Computed example of a mutant assay.
Amino acid sequence: MNEQPTILVTGVNGQVGYELLRSLQGLGRVVGLDRAALDLADLDRVREVVREAKPAIIVNPAAYTAVDKAESDEAAARRLNAEAPGVLAEEAARCGAALIHYSTDYVFDGTKDAPYAEDDATNPQNVYGATKLEGEQAIAASGCAHLILRTSWVYGRRGKNFLLTMLKLGAERPELRVVADQFGAPTWSRTIAEATSHIVAQGVAADDAAWWAQRSGVYHFTASGATSWHGFAEAIFASALGERAPKTVPIPASDYPVPAKRPANSRLALDKLNETFGLSMPAWDDALRLCLGD
Rank of each mutant, 00 (worst) to 15 (best):
E83C: 13
A84W: 00
A84K: 01
A84M: 05
G86W: 02
G86V: 00
G86Y: 03
G86D: 03
G86F: 05
V87T: 02
V87A: 07
V87M: 04
V87K: 01
L88C: 09
L88V: 12
L88T: 11
L88M: 08
A89Q: 05
A89W: 07
A89N: 04
E90P: 13
E90T: 14
E91S: 14
E91P: 12
E91L: 12
A92N: 01
A92V: 08
A93C: 14
A93V: 13
A93E: 10
R94Y: 07
R94A: 04
C95T: 01
C95I: 12
C95A: 06
G96N: 10
G96E: 07
G96A: 02
G96W: 07
G96D: 06
G96R: 08
A98M: 12
L99N: 03
L99Y: 05
I100R: 00
I100N: 02
I100S: 04
H101M: 07
Y102C: 03
T104N: 09
D105W: 04
Y106M: 15
V107R: 10
V107M: 06
V107T: 11
F108S: 04
F108I: 08
D109K: 13
D109P: 00
G110V: 00
G110F: 02
T111P: 07
T111A: 13
K112A: 15
K112M: 15
K112H: 14
D113A: 10
D113I: 06
D113Y: 11
A114W: 14
P115T: 13
P115M: 15
P115G: 10
P115W: 05
P115C: 13
P115K: 03
Y116D: 01
A117I: 09
A117W: 02
A117E: 15
A117S: 15
A117T: 06
E118T: 08
E118A: 03
E118N: 00
D119R: 15
D119C: 06
D119V: 15
D120P: 00
A121W: 03
A121F: 11
A121Q: 12
T122E: 07
T122W: 10
T122S: 05
N123E: 14
N123W: 10
N123C: 10
N123G: 15
P124W: 00
P124M: 07
P124R: 07
P124N: 08
P124A: 06
Q125D: 14
Q125G: 12
Q125T: 11
N126H: 08
N126I: 01
V127W: 00
V127T: 00
Y128G: 03
G129V: 00
G129C: 09
G129H: 11
A130Y: 05
A130H: 02
A130S: 10
A130L: 08
A130N: 12
T131N: 07
T131C: 03
K132L: 04
